[in-house]
Computed example of a mutant assay.
Amino acid sequence: MPRYYFDLREGDEVTPDEEGSELPTGLATQAEAAKSLSDIIREDVHSNPLALGRRDFAIDVRNDAGPVVQVRLIFELEAVKNRKAASAVGRFLSFRTRVRLWARCRR
Rank of each mutant, 00 (worst) to 15 (best):
G11L: 10
S38V: 00
R106M: 07
D60S: 01
F6L: 01
N82I: 05
V80A: 02
A51D: 04
R42F: 13
T15L: 09
E78P: 01
R9Y: 02
L50P: 07
K35D: 07
N63V: 11
A79I: 00
L50S: 14
E32H: 15
K84C: 08
P24D: 12
I41K: 10
G90L: 12
V71L: 07
F6V: 01
A79M: 04
I40R: 14
T15H: 08
P24E: 13
C105Y: 12
E22N: 10
R72M: 14
Q70K: 12
Q30C: 07
E13P: 01
K84F: 13
G90W: 02
N63P: 02
L73T: 09
V80E: 09
E10V: 09
R3H: 04
P67A: 10
T15R: 11
K84Q: 12
V80I: 13
W102S: 04
F57Q: 02
S36L: 11
P67H: 06
S87V: 05
A33H: 11
R62G: 05
E10G: 06
A79G: 04
I40G: 06
R42P: 00
V69G: 05
R42Q: 08
D56W: 03
R91F: 09
E32N: 09
R9S: 01
L27V: 03
D64I: 08
R104G: 06
V89I: 10
L50R: 06
Q30M: 15
S38R: 09
R54Q: 13
R100V: 15
A31P: 03
A28I: 10
P49Q: 13
L50Q: 11
A58K: 02
A51M: 04
Y5L: 05
F75W: 11
E76F: 14
A33G: 08
K35R: 14
R62V: 08
I41G: 11
S47P: 00
D17N: 05
V80F: 04
A51E: 10
V45H: 05
R107V: 02
A86D: 13
A65K: 12
D64L: 14
R100E: 15
R55A: 01
V71Q: 00
Y4Q: 03
L77D: 02
D60R: 03
A88F: 12
P16T: 01
Q70W: 01
D39M: 11
A34N: 03
S47K: 01
N82C: 08
V45E: 06
R83G: 03
C105A: 03
L73M: 15
F92K: 02
D64K: 15
L73G: 10
I40V: 14
A85M: 12
K81Q: 06
I41W: 08
L23I: 07
V68E: 08
G26M: 06
G11N: 05
V80G: 04
D7P: 00
R104I: 04
T25F: 00
D12E: 14
E18M: 04
E18V: 02
V14D: 05
A28H: 09
Q30V: 10
S87R: 05
E13G: 07
E76Y: 08
P24F: 09
M1C: 13
E32G: 03
P67Q: 03
N63G: 10
E76S: 13
L52N: 09
V89N: 05
L93E: 14
K84A: 15
R54M: 15
L93N: 11
G53K: 10
W102A: 04
A33R: 00
